[in-house]
Write a protein that binds this DNA or RNA. Structure first.
Length: 470
DNA sequence: TTTTGAGTTGTTCGA
DNA sequence: GTCGAACAACTCAAA
């Protein structure tokens, strides 16, 4: 038992550096068997995140090969797979990094108690967050419901320095049999050609570290000024890597803190964004219904429209509102969307089209390579008005005004809208190659008329929101 | 217990 | 073109 192998169950912590579970396992000196389990919690993901996860697993398997270890892949219910592996390898312990969304918590609690009942050591670690949701509380001992006080509560806390990259792992006498990643067909649901999206993703721990370094070196100074401009390439784009744990939040935190100390202007705004992610996890942990139901009880009965033609126009980037359509196409082709654009398309769907925020949430889950259950639940409800720290009811984004303010040169629209342009941008054309033929889209078809007038939509939204208030 | 100040990201209208 | 006010009222968090 004392020298029995440890199963290291990887999930969204696909990295060798600053991985507490991995470090703890390594320090025992016992053989470590890295495992990734493809279970229903993975199965429930949308097309793009699942495809992107497959790329992440592939890169991480290579990284493990590089240090003389290997990643064992198995399909099935997590508990059963772990039991099988214990049986096959004689492992005496299972380590993993905690997750915080309700589905994962339910699964992990069941796994932990079952394994312990069966005499196994089962330990979870924190690799995903800087501040555990239960370690931040108000003076009254409650969780935070507003971002600013949350920020003030954590901003001066000490965050432990990142752990060193693991350079070698003791191998077991025999490796368990692994399935082949290709057989998992992680990209099978990608209706948009994976070939179209592939050039826009940035996979793996090394790439993530390079991305961070480049951001801190070049862009953080102008972050405050430029981050709101979707055509500016002023953001870090690290959400993609954070999602799969290819970089740790505290690695980013410490880089940001160093930049702050060096007097780089945008550093504090950057750190605040990282803490927004923490806040989203704080909320999803304390109020897990945020992923499915109105966070505010009084919004439960808001007469949202369900899915339908309007939502379909929104999904297809054919609302007739250039900024909205540009953003939806950006997401379809690249798997990401600029933050400001996310707010605008969400506001348009929930307010101008009065459509249920869950319709939008679901489409984002299908399309975003940085899909994150906590950030998205919080973000959608924030825009819809049903969430914590919510926008005042009268805050309805006007996509035209926003375009004038944040895309004054029209660079974003030019990049993503092909119709009616003499020499359309390559990315704008790639959208038409990416969409399913069944959508029947072609750039020469012409640009659609607006599905609803902006002024009319705004008026209608304000009236509906007025009603719910009473 | 009560009070106080504040609350990510907006738009429109009229001066 | 620019600027301030109005658009509501309520909840949150700390003093």
């Amino acid at each position: 038992m004392s020298d029995s192998p440890i199963l290291l169950w990887f999930r969204r912590d696909l990295r060798l550096a600053d991985n507490p579970a991995l470090t703890a396992a390594s320090e025992t000196g016992r053989p470590v068997i890295p495992v990734f389990i493809h279970d229903e919690v993975v199965e429930g993901q949308g097309a793009a995140p699942k495809w992107r996860l497959g790329l992440g697993i592939g890169a991480f398997a290579e990284a493990l090969d590089g240090i003389g270890s290997r990643l064992t892949l198995r399909r099935g219910a997590a508990l059963q797979v772990l039991r099988d592996l214990v049986e096959e390898t004689g492992a005496g312990a299972v380590y993993w990094s905690r997750l915080y969304d309700p589905r994962a918590i339910a699964r992990d609690e069941a796994v932990k108690s079952a394994l312990r009942d069966e005499g196994m050591k089962a330990e979870s670690f924190n690799a995903h967050l800087m501040f555990e949701p239960w370690q931040v509380e108000t003076q009254k001992g409650e969780y935070y419901k507003v971002y600013s006080p949350f920020w003030r509560a954590v901003k001066d806390r000490d965050v432990a320095a990142p752990l060193k990259r693991i350079e070698s792992l003791a191998a077991p006498e025999n490796w368990p049999v692994s399935e082949r990643l290709d057989d998992w067909e992680m990209g099978a649901a990608m209706r948009r050609g994976a070939k179209i999206v592939r050039p826009h993703v940035c996979v793996g721990e090394n790439a993530a570290a390079d991305r961070l370094a480049a951001f801190i070196e070049i862009r953080v100074t102008d972050y405050k000024r430029k981050r709101d401009f979707p055509a500016a390439e002023a953001t870090s784009r690290l959400s993609e890597n954070l999602t799969y744990g290819e970089i740790s939040p505290r690695t980013i935190w410490h880089s940001g803190q160093r930049a702050l100390q060096e007097g780089k202007a945008g550093a504090e705004h950057f750190l605040k964004e990282l803490v927004w992610r923490e806040f989203a996890y704080h909320l999803i942990y304390h109020t897990p219904h945020i992923t499915k139901d109105s966070w505010r009880q009084e919004w439960q009965d808001f007469p949202w429209r369900g899915d339908g033609e309007l939502a379909e126009a929104w999904r297809r980037g054919r609302t007739g509102v250039p900024f909205v359509d540009a953003a939806m196409r950006e997401m379809y082709v690249t798997g990401t969307m600029h933050n400001r654009a996310r707010m605008i398309v969400a506001s348009y769907l929930t307010k101008h089209l009065l459509t249920d925020w869950r319709v939008g949430q679901k489409w984002f889950e299908d399309c975003l390579i940085d899909w994150d259950p906590a950030s998205n639940a919080m973000g959608w409800q924030w825009v819809a008005g049903s969430g914590p720290d919510a926008a005042p009811y009268f805050r309805v984004f006007n996509p035209e005004t926003q375009a004038e303010k944040f895309d004054p040169e029209s660079a974003y629209l030019d990049r993503w809208i092909a119709e009616g342009r003499d020499d359309p941008h390559e990315d704008a054309l790639s959208y038409f190659k990416a969409v399913p033929e069944s959508w029947g889209l072609a750039p020469e078809e012409g640009y659609p008329d607006p599905v609803v007038g902006l002024a009319e939509g705004r008026k209608r939204a304000l009236a509906a929101y007025e009603d719910v208030r009473k």
